[in-house]
Design a binder for these strands. Structure first.
Lengths: 142, 142
DNA sequence: ATTGGTGCAAAGGATTTGCAGTCTA
DNA sequence: TAGACTGCAAATCCTTTGCACCAAT
């Protein structure tokens, strides 16, 4: 997947060039959303993104958040993470990493253990190629 | 996770003892749902399960399907797989395996490559233990 | 009687859609 | 002006919930 070299937080001008790099025209709303996302590596739901962007004093509609996040994940700006059946999370961390999902608390955290990257890739049917590998460890304290 | 020794399809009496093994009382609806699930290893949405069970001439309500699948996945009878943002899939294959998700077609298939099992487990914070590891390879033909 | 299980319909909540208005090249 | 984009509200769709009824212990 995309392996951008990001230093959080990303400032506006960096966000703009990042979007352009992904062939996304940097409209006001998209830039504001991306700026919010790339303040730090994080996992956010659409609703949280809407809240956050709004709280920063920017006006964006719910539909645009959904449109934009759909666009961003298609283009590879963020990764969709599906763990909670309730909603989709968008991951602004571009590094290769895995997730730890605490089933007791619902908390989602990143894992970077080098060993994990040793995962072998499966043999694929002709013509198919892997574009992303999701590894989620479900953990509990019980 | 559970590593039952299953030979598909499971017949009714086997389903009943399996449920008892998981400390689930084998009501008519639960047995019918489980019988349908364990005809073969498969990934099914709640709606498909309702359809299938109904088509076999058994009467089960939608609420009961949801209740039952929630119970089954809590007890470890089936695994929840979240890949498609549309809905939850329930996996009746108890063997250790991973998934291949074709983003072009939405098709979900199993992978058994032995190598994949070499995945190292990450270091965990004190007190937490891994209860399940999900690996999904997203593939495309494009 | 009490507890567990089921079914129905209504409610809930996340996401999508239709469409009119807006911006920009 | 065309095409891309946005916003609003209504619609959709999966899943959950409230509650009455039924079954089994």
């Amino acid at each position: 997947m995309n392996t951008l070299n990001i230093t959080f937080p990303l400032e506006r001008s960096e966000v703009v060039s990042m979007l352009q790099h992904f062939k996304i025209s940097p409209t006001r709303q998209r830039v504001e959303i991306a700026e919010f996302l790339f303040q730090r590596p994080q996992h956010l739901s659409a609703e949280k993104i809407l809240d956050g962007v709004t709280r920063e004093g920017n006006r964006v509609s719910r539909a645009t958040v959904y449109n934009t996040m759909g666009l961003f994940s298609n283009k590879g700006v963020v990764r969709e993470v599906l763990i909670d059946r309730e909603r989709v999370f968008y991951d602004s961390n571009p590094e290769v990493h895995q997730h730890l999902y605490n089933i007791d608390t619902g908390e989602l955290t990143d894992v970077y253990d080098a060993e994990v990257e040793m995962v072998a890739e499966p043999e694929l049917p002709e013509g198919l190629k892997i574009i992303d590998t999701d590894i989620v460890y479900k953990v509990t304290a019980r």
